[in-house]
């Protein structure tokens, strides 16, 4: 599918499969080399577009394929089938150019934990060619805006709480002014106040910098508050894609009473949040 300029992201028929080693079964003859492997279909034929400046949420239970999809979009995984275009550029063929446009906050704080927030941010700034003076000013601004005490910027990351580390991860991603921001469960583990700070900041960034945001989350309220459209992913496939209001309205019409987004999720997946997909 040809990408039009309005589209920040176009995913077309994306599929990804991994192979997992099977456990040894007593009594079953072992192979000489390696173990048997079985395929795991992490993402199955996913197609969607995200418009420039939109916040798009991907909801799904654990193991449903959200992070695999984010990794494919972030150029860290090759899809087996299908294509992903970011502002018209193929993520497989134009990796370097795509990487200049994106940044990602992952659910795990990916930092050198012995280094301070400042040292980690300066490392990121140099990789993304942000001038050190500019990086110093911007990172302080962002961190203060997120309620991060400036005094803590020079202490090793391992001495910071998970919430603090996640705020530094958000600051690091925004420091590079990405036009497409990939947020993989960015508020998981944050206290309510920090969560609100991060959510408010995401909205501000999207409005002031025209940034497109792809968000995966477990938090229904967060998805409803932040995104314009959302997709629900189950066993690697999108089972719904619409605005939160439309998704709720469809189920309300069917059930005859008002429903929440959680009801929609349960209806479509038949699973609770914490169940493994």
């Amino acid at each position: 599918m040809a990408a039009v300029l309005e589209d920040a992201l176009v995913c077309t028929g994306v599929s990804k499969q991994f192979y997992e080693e099977e456990e040894r079964v007593p009594g079953v003859k072992r192979r000489w080399f390696g173990r048997r492997k079985r395929p795991i279909h992490a993402v199955k034929d996913v197609t969607f577009q995200v418009k420039r400046g939109e916040i798009f949420a991907i909801l799904g239970p654990n193991g449903s394929g959200k992070s695999t999809l984010i990794r494919i979009i972030s150029t860290l995984l090759f899809p087996d089938r299908g294509s992903v275009h970011i502002f018209g550029m193929d993520v497989m063929k134009k990796r370097l150019y795509v990487r200049r446009m994106i940044n990602r906050v992952s659910v795990e704080a990916a930092f050198f934990k012995k280094l301070s927030s400042y040292e980690n941010l300066m490392y990121a700034a140099r990789l993304y060619d942000v001038k050190p003076e500019e990086a110093r000013v911007r990172s302080r601004e962002i961190l203060e805006r997120l309620g991060f005490s400036p005094k803590k910027i020079y202490i090793p990351m391992e001495n910071l709480s998970r919430g603090m580390q996640q705020k530094v991860a958000v600051a690091r991603a925004l420091l590079t002014s990405p036009v497409l921001l990939l947020l993989d469960e960015p508020t998981t583990g944050l206290d309510p106040k920090s969560k609100r700070d991060v959510q408010k900041f995401i909205l501000e960034v999207q409005e002031s910098h025209d940034t497109t945001v792809i968000l995966t989350t477990h938090d229904m309220d967060e998805a409803e508050k932040l995104c314009q459209r959302m997709a629900i992913i189950e066993d690697g496939s999108f089972v719904a894609l619409d605005t939160p209001q439309n998704l709720k309205a469809q189920l309300t019409r069917k059930n005859g009473h008002a429903v929440t987004l959680e009801d929609v999720f349960l209806e479509l997946t038949g699973k609770g949040w914490e169940e493994e997909g």
Partner: peptide
Amino acid sequence: WEGTIEYTFMAPIR
């Protein structure tokens, strides 16, 4: 081991 491999590999550098 540090958990930074994906961050470094998706940096926009050769």
